[in-house]
Design a protein around this nucleic acid. Sequence first.
DNA 1: CTGCATGCAAAAACTTTGCACCGCC
DNA 2: GGCGGTGCAAAGTTTTTGCATGCAG
Lengths: 129, 129
Amino acid sequence: MIKYSRQRECIKNFLVSRYDHPTAETIYQNIKKDFPNISLGTVYRNLTLLCSLGEIQKISAGTGPDRFDGNTSPHYHFICKCCGSVLDLNVAGLDHINILAEQNFHGKIEGHVAYFYGQCPCCSQSADL
Amino acid sequence: MIKYSRQRECIKNFLVSRYDHPTAETIYQNIKKDFPNISLGTVYRNLTLLCSLGEIQKISAGTGPDRFDGNTSPHYHFICKCCGSVLDLNVAGLDHINILAEQNFHGKIEGHVAYFYGQCPCCSQSADL
DNA sequence: CTGCATGCAAAAACTTTGCACCGCC
DNA sequence: GGCGGTGCAAAGTTTTTGCATGCAG
């Protein structure tokens, strides 16, 4: 049975309020403002728990620490090769790709994640200069 | 300038011969058969180098250590939620998704990776019993 | 009160790096 | 022989965990 905790609620609220997909460390630094004694271990434990409850999402970009996203609606992520920022990306009409993938496969496909790479609006603008 | 090394060639050959996407540790254990004194650091250095040369591919599944793939032709990966195995997956007609992604985005999209999750043929068969 | 959650710190897991020596070009 | 590669070990980074205490139910 899962018990309410003020720390967990704070972490959840923080994530929902942010759109930059912070790392555990960033979350930790920010939650400290409300809970000066919170430990990084507690942050990790709650992030893992919230993920398994489906209330948040973990982003493993393949480099650097994992990031977390309070937005659980289906969407994708873009990672800037230039500045490393992680942006939300809504891609229309990708719902079918599980079915496409299953066509050459004898197992059961239940979901997918995808990461797009390139230059973010900010960096591709600077490149034009 | 990059110099030839027998260790690197051996790592490359090993990866090309395997279809199970081994981890650095597994590669290390196997290369040891030919080079008993090779160090894990050398394995990591060569894997990083081969990746940046585009001769192999790194797979970051989001859990556990990174895996490596000697197959550089465009294809996707499937990760079994049940047994953790990583399988190759050819998905037809996914070339366009960079373009789809760019439709709602003001930066430049250069590529993507995608991972599919579910039950592998082996595990979905056991589930039927 | 009971037991899950926390804080703290140690440790685990994975990867990178400094340095002296080795071997390709 | 010069310089990049290796082996070794230490250290870095990220995440997990054991344990005593705290707090929700």
